[in-house]
Amino acid sequence: MKAAPFEYFVADSIDEVTTGLADSGEEATIIAGGQTLVPLMAMRLARPALLIDVNGIGDLQGIDLLAGGVRIKACTRQSDALKSTIIGERLPLLAKALPYVGHAQTRNRGTVGGSIALGDPAAEIPLVATALDARITLVKKGNSRELSIHGFYQGPMMTSREPDECITEILFPQWQGEGRRGTGFQEVSLRHGDFAIVAAAAQISVGEDGVCARASVALGGVSGTPFRISAAEDALRGTMIDDPALRAVANAVDQAVDPQSDLHASASYRRRVAKVLVERVIREAAREAANHAAGDAP
């Protein structure tokens, strides 16, 4: 289990990364944390001719609170994100999900942007990014663009990133306005720390009257990409998040998922468990919202 030969280049700046990508095209691969890439290379399922190492670029690291939300630079370690008070206070949904990402030893190396870039349909960070309508900044030589997470994923491990583009940051917008907020995150995996078989995330906002004003509900592991279930969100808005609303949510989930079978779980398992987990994350979020003072983050 040894990687095929490759050339290695340490980039000291984003410019060097984009130049390297422009010059080498699809032969080059960015290595950030490497926690998924290195095993794929060891199994020779990935054989880049050139690795461009971005770990030393200071401009790619850091977590900042901006007017529009929380910006996480792409090469920020997952463990740093987990320790971040900004994320703890402003992105509680992400804070809830991060402990499920691998183990302490992989989070110490793995990056937020790396997980976003890979686009595993069961991974936690892409799921939360989907639930929170994250925006992804991609830079290439002489150009940059910002994309919504929605549409960024095109299928399992497939994104709309061009081969010569580098993800530099992810913006998690904050919900504006009043209301009590709550979040829920749940996943089922074989072992703690394994990739989820099914994962669900929800963030809601309820008014003083207990009526749901806004809801975001997303699922991972049940389709080719993580996705928001807008019909479920519609079914929650304007309700007291009561049993009829949750039944409508379950129907919406049932309509929305398109799961596949694999070694560890059948498609029908994923379909049923998706409904279970969505109900649980909504209840969790509703409980939290009920306990929150109005105007609390997020």
Partner: peptide
């Protein structure tokens, strides 16, 4: 396996 147990419990209720 988790999925087998769940199937046994809930498999009859669903497609």
């Amino acid at each position: 396996a988790m999925a087998d147990i769940e199937e046994l419990l809930n498999g009859g209720d669903s497609i």
